[in-house]
Design a protein around this nucleic acid. Sequence first.
DNA 1: GTGTCTGCAAACAGTTTGCACTTCT
DNA 2: AGAAGTGCAAACTGTTTGCAGACAC
Lengths: 145, 145
Amino acid sequence: MRPESEVFREFLIHKGMRSTPEREEILAEVFAHHDHFDVEELIMRLRRRGLRISRASVYRTLALLVESGMVGEVYIEDGHMHYEHIYGHEHHCHLRCLGCRKLIEFRNGSLKEMEKRIGQENDFEIIGHKLEIYGYCAACRGEES
Amino acid sequence: MRPESEVFREFLIHKGMRSTPEREEILAEVFAHHDHFDVEELIMRLRRRGLRISRASVYRTLALLVESGMVGEVYIEDGHMHYEHIYGHEHHCHLRCLGCRKLIEFRNGSLKEMEKRIGQENDFEIIGHKLEIYGYCAACRGEES
DNA sequence: GTGTCTGCAAACAGTTTGCACTTCT
DNA sequence: AGAAGTGCAAACTGTTTGCAGACAC
């Protein structure tokens, strides 16, 4: 698999845009942890590494990363967007606990054939999907009693 | 099936809240059309019926309807939330065209058994799910050429 | 009558944008 | 040199909130 930085740089060049230190650092930080994150966290993490990249640049770069398909917008919580990196990671869906708001990832191969069928039935070329299942985790079910 | 107004009134009473003309009108308008809607549209529709219900009351009532489970938050587009009524309507999923942004609804029974399996595997009590499949509709595929 | 609800306007938060300056090529 | 990017602060937008008067029960 080609390194993220290379893929992103190519995406930028293809759009007639430049690779800059800020963009590289943001990209690196996004792929440094496998966790969902929001803009505030990302900026904090950059700060911790001694980088003073402006909020505006973070927003602008994140938009590019989403456009390139390397990063995904996952959900809005507490009024702001949460992201995850996608490039190089197997597709997964989310299980959301309505009690503690915890999010669990799970692999899910069985949607493939359903996608195919849905695509044919609706004359749609299917690119991908986003599935969130919600309910209550074991711990939260325990508390109820 | 019991009428929406009755179900909502009961929900309110259960919470120690009151049934008011504003809440009843908003509820009625939400269930008057089978389309996704946003706050602006809802207010417009109320206005058209000669009702001057404040934006604040619409937001507050919508939050209650979502809490009651009668209305669902569907997706964010153009920076604001879009809703749909749920009560009395069969569950469905969404097919989103990435070209024209059109949203198609489709029924989808086959997720039931998958839900069951996922629930067992993750020790989760599953309440529901939200599935959005995205791709390109026939018209938008045609244009590409 | 009392406690909730409404409408208003102000507050708020996340995000976007205009602009002067910097940086990359 | 010239185009594109950055940081800053102000602007913007959807949503929430505090409060005074109105209303449901």
